[in-house]
């Protein structure tokens, strides 16, 4: 009994340390591979790195060069168009499908997986499929002509002014079902009594949804906005598979810009600067969200 006490003490002290020891490999990895690497890339963005990293400080030169490049402006403008349409369309389609699917639909169990399966695919697969479907020579346009609609014209993917919209089509195809699932989960979480009470008060369907149901879906709106906007900024694979950034540079996004400047055009400093701007864009969206999320939970 007498020497049982220090042993227990030792055990308790060990127990205090085990959780931190268990957590430490992940934290170390995070500090090095996430925050350390971010710091390193930020540092590189202030150097004159070309093909290889260099440590000669040039201040903000890369950033001023970057914002002077028409190529970068194309990428930024495209991101604006793409992100806005992608977020609005995915949210709109997702919400509409979720509301309609929530009306005691026969065959819901069949429809839901059909809407959702694209999210299981790689963007490379999606891009491969849509590249072909959108190709006027062998895709949709050709099919319509063969079906007798001779005047049907759809060559956006070959058109500098419209190619970015084809990226939107393919991306919305891939993600909108997932947004539907988020809204559907939100709808299923709403207390039916509230809806019944509103119906007794004589609210129309339209009013019921606009005034009561949709405002209650706020968390689902917020989550889907955050997920969609960060996916939009990170979009890379789809561009590579669908348009390769073309025709010309018509569908370049910051992600493809960063890759080509860093690894094929030997301007690592400018590439790093563009990556820093991508990170800042995402941080501006994520930080308030994460802050609110964590505050609420703890």
């Amino acid at each position: 009994m007498a020497h049982g006490v220090p042993a227990a003490d030792f055990r308790t002290r060990l127990q205090d340390w085990i959780p931190k020891l268990v957590l430490s490999p992940s934290l170390a990895a995070m500090l090095v591979f996430v925050y350390g690497f971010i710091g390193f890339t930020v540092y590189l963005s202030f150097t004159d790195s070309k093909m290889l990293p260099s440590y000669d400080w040039v201040g903000l030169e890369n950033y001023s060069k970057l914002w002077g490049l028409s190529h970068w402006w194309t990428a930024i403008t495209n991101l604006g168009i793409f992100a806005a349409l992608y977020i609005v369309l995915c949210t709109g389609i997702g919400l509409a499908l979720a509301i309609f699917l929530d009306q005691k639909i026969r065959g819901e169990g069949l429809l839901r997986p059909v809407y959702l399966y694209p999210m299981a695919l790689s963007f490379i697969v999606t891009g491969t499929a849509w590249k072909w479907i959108l190709d006027p020579g062998i895709g949709l346009e050709n099919t319509m002509h063969l079906w007798g609609w001779e005047s049907f014209h759809f060559d956006w993917i070959k058109n500098r002014d419209f190619a970015i919209y084809t990226v939107v089509i393919a991306a919305v195809w891939q993600t909108s079902g997932f947004v539907m699932a988020m809204f559907l989960a939100g709808l299923r979480g709403i207390d039916n009594e509230i809806l019944k009470a509103a119906q007794i008060d004589g609210a129309s369907n339209w009013k019921l949804y606009r005034r009561i149901v949709i405002p209650m879906l706020r968390p689902a709106f917020l989550s889907s906005f955050v997920i969609l906007s960060h996916l939009a900024v990170k979009s890379y694979d789809l561009i590579i598979a669908l348009t390769g950034g073309g025709p010309g540079r018509a569908t370049e996004l910051p992600a493809t810009f960063m890759y080509s400047y860093t690894f094929t055009r030997n301007s690592m400093g400018i590439g790093a600067a563009s990556a820093v701007i991508m990170l800042m864009t995402i941080a501006a969206i994520m930080t308030p969200y994460l802050y609110a999320e964590l505050k609420e939970k703890s």
Partner: peptide, 23 residues
């Protein structure tokens, strides 16, 4: 611990272009 978790959570959403060169 919640600060650590916050840092971990943020790391989920970084654009991977930011770690490509050092990696």
């Amino acid at each position: 611990d919640s600060i650590l978790f916050g840092l971990l959570l943020f790391s989920c959403f970084i654009p991977f272009q930011i770690v490509l060169i050092p990696m």
